[in-house]
Design a protein around this nucleic acid. Structure first.
Lengths: 140, 140
DNA sequence: TCGAGAACGTTAACCGGTAAACGATCTGAT
DNA sequence: ATCAGATCGTTTACCGGTTAACGTTCTCGA
């Protein structure tokens, strides 16, 4: 396997595991925190809006929302003016998770970037941005 | 969401999609190619060996192997000396995929690293290696 | 006004991955 | 020689993700 792909794949897996463990300490699973983050930024959004914001398909949001509702972290409520729309609203429990989860994520980021110098970190971000751009342009 | 985690997450998703599309042109799904690659490197390995080589759990290999066997790309055969062991053997069809899949993967790697200078690429690999090391040391 | 088509969210079927429980086989100390 | 324990692969149950099909509701032009 080519060098970069191999390395990126391994790093991805480890990063995913670390993020999952971090979020799991607060009763969440990976992915659920992204949905909640979308609501922390703006409460009462629709599944479609959230899906676009989180780069995931709408059915994925539907399922996550069902589980988060069962956990009592959000509520489904119909839109007042358009009955096709469903809006997701945080419960107090859902809102209470914002600070601890964000702290957890920041701690992970800090732990990772601590081993890099400022310029190394900047170069890394720049390189990833370039790669992202290439892949995006390939879709068209 | 912290800067690096956000960027890495997006890049990962795009990279995964690109790799999936590439491999899908040859009738495979993402992950199946990794299992095959382990057999291309050394045929007749056991699920446990392959799982360790690919950084995946053994049940994951079991399921992938079942699907690849149904597709006629490999065969399950018991080990001659230890009946607990199962050994996976490539069929001619499975062997025939090696060159096209490896070419596909190399093409993706080239497309990505083409936008980077040699030093940028070296710095990227170095940074990722550092991050990987931090995450690995965190497990202990 | 009314009906065709667009815009939604949900469901169903699939895939790759994990953890936990299970069953079969081998190993080694007694 | 035997039996407790280790070592395997598989099964089961879950989760997040995708695509495709579906039913409901809105919109807008004839």
């Amino acid at each position: 396997m080519p060098e970069f792909l191999e390395l990126h794949s391994k790093t991805s897996k480890l990063l995913r595991a670390a993020a999952d463990a971090a979020v799991q300490r607060h009763g969440l699973r990976l992915g659920q925190d992204h949905l909640l983050a979308a609501l922390w930024a703006q409460d009462g959004r629709t599944p479609g809006e959230i899906a676009a914001a989180v780069n995931v398909t709408t059915p994925a949001v539907t399922k996550l929302a069902t589980r988060l509702a069962e956990s009592g972290l959000l509520e489904r409520r119909p839109d007042a003016h358009d009955n096709r729309l469903v809006r997701l609203w945080l419960t107090p429990a859902g809102r209470a998770l914002q600070k601890p989860i964000e702290a957890e994520r920041q701690a992970l980021e800090d732990r990772i970037t601590a081993t890099l110098t400022k310029t190394e970190r900047a170069q890394l971000l720049k390189a990833l941005a370039k790669i992202q751009q290439v892949l995006l342009s390939d879709l068209a």
